[in-house]
Nucleic acid binder design. Sequence first.
DNA 1: AATCCCCCGTGATTATTATAACAAATGATT
DNA 2: AATCATTTGTTATAATAATCACGGGGGATT
Lengths: 225, 225
Amino acid sequence: MNSCAFRGQAIFKEAGIMKIAEPTVERLVLYYRLLSQLHNEERRVVSSQEIGEMLGLKASQVRKDLSYFGEIGKRGVGYHVDRLYQHISNILSPNRVWKIALVGVGRLGEALLGHKALRSDKFKLEALFDNDPSKVGQVICGIPCYDSEEMTEIIRRKEIEVLILTVPAGAAQISADRAVAAGTVKGVLTFATTAISVPEDVLVYRVDISVELEKLLFFLKGSVA
Amino acid sequence: MNSCAFRGQAIFKEAGIMKIAEPTVERLVLYYRLLSQLHNEERRVVSSQEIGEMLGLKASQVRKDLSYFGEIGKRGVGYHVDRLYQHISNILSPNRVWKIALVGVGRLGEALLGHKALRSDKFKLEALFDNDPSKVGQVICGIPCYDSEEMTEIIRRKEIEVLILTVPAGAAQISADRAVAAGTVKGVLTFATTAISVPEDVLVYRVDISVELEKLLFFLKGSVA
DNA sequence: AATCCCCCGTGATTATTATAACAAATGATT
DNA sequence: AATCATTTGTTATAATAATCACGGGGGATT
Ligand SMILES: NC(=O)c1ccc[n+]([C@@H]2O[C@H](COP(=O)([O-])OP(=O)(O)OC[C@H]3O[C@@H](n4cnc5c(N)ncnc54)[C@H](O)[C@@H]3O)[C@@H](O)[C@H]2O)c1
Ligand SMILES: NC(=O)c1ccc[n+]([C@@H]2O[C@H](COP(=O)([O-])OP(=O)(O)OC[C@H]3O[C@@H](n4cnc5c(N)ncnc54)[C@H](O)[C@@H]3O)[C@@H](O)[C@H]2O)c1
């Protein structure tokens, strides 16, 4: 089963190629988490209605998302928890273990290092980079920290494919440039509060905490008298 | 100028009520940051084309977003940097200084505390909450940390309106419940990797780092051979 | 086995968001 | 002043995403 980035409702394509919309992938991860929980609770079946209530989604949305991958539920009954869990797990599982690196071992970088989000069997964190002499050369959370000046060379040598950027805004572009120059980087997850420009074939995802807070406050302004 | 949360393209309403789509608000924050930078560089004018190039957006998107708030640009010329900066600042500025609290002073909570995202004149961080005895009673980054058992009472007394949730997933719902019980909370920004359920009139924004990483990996799988 | 209520899968519809296209305005140039 | 190259504001259109609505299994119950 192949898949690729796509803006639009998920559709089956003749050639066996499946294109899944980003909002659907996001919800698949939520379904996966929920199923994991239900699995642990030894729950046997669950309906789209129930999934929707637990995640704050419409039942029809849940059914549509799940139906993109074949008829996995049972009419009149619901979805078999373990089967659906395994199914979504297959969909989300990568076809390889990605090699990743984190640039900027500051407050946020260290928080990430300590968190389970970076302990996944989908990737292996192979290197850290920083320009702070007190960090370079250290082994932090079991991962060696290198000088960011050597980034291009080390990323190329280690064949790092994914970059997590937790450097200050001013260092984001130069860090991205150094990493991309290695030629191995396929994707970047950036937390910097600035836009970065990379070659077209590098996929960038941005997590912008300040923006989310601003949006919350903006819409609060309108909803409250 | 009033505004409220709304799913759909921004429209002027007769009554002077303006409804702005969330994607537009998100980009407004990006425009604001960029304008701040251009302002510091003493740039005088900028075109929608240039803004778009710097932020990775189409010029037509930029013009559309900016036009919701009246004719602020000058045809044949572009947008006057300082004027647009001030204008967006007005749009984004709250009609009050929000009182906020942060629950869960762990790795992520502390990273946020140290970051400028929580040093804004749009809100005042009034309280921290944790259930770790080594944190309760301390003053962390200048903010007092209270026992999470006392949350309802303290939030009510301090009239906290916005909550930042950085507790483990298992503590997210109980924390939200305790806070909401105070009756003063209007909005929540949660980083927990779980859904929380709150009354309809409480606005929830979620930042889910693991989900973003999962999405990146999923779409990498499809884009790479 | 007939009846009933349940609940999935899916095509149709609606809602939302992005892009394109162009008239109108602006300042520069001749 | 007329012409021209620009660049906005805005309407029209396209693209994307969510929801509805219903056909059709599925199993329990009588
Ligand atoms: N901390 C937060 O809660 C938070 C919230 C929102 C956004 N962010 C964003 O995340 C990023 C990191 O924030 P932070 O709070 O961890 O900052 P920080 O200052 O604590 O850490 C930044 C790290 O990057 C390193 N660094 C600086 N320049 C570098 C370079 N050229 N190459 C390699 N490393 C370099 C520094 O030595 C430091 O270790 C920033 O862009 C920030 O805007 C952070
Ligand atoms: N650290 C990260 O980079 C990261 C990444 C993605 C998601 N998250 C999410 O953010 C949240 C916090 O993560 P973290 O890494 O900071 O965890 P952490 O364990 O470092 O911190 C959690 C804090 O919450 C406190 N706490 C626990 N139960 C509490 C309760 N009932 N009331 C009040 N406080 C309580 C703990 O004492 C601790 O100080 C989690 O939901 C996590 O999934 C964190």
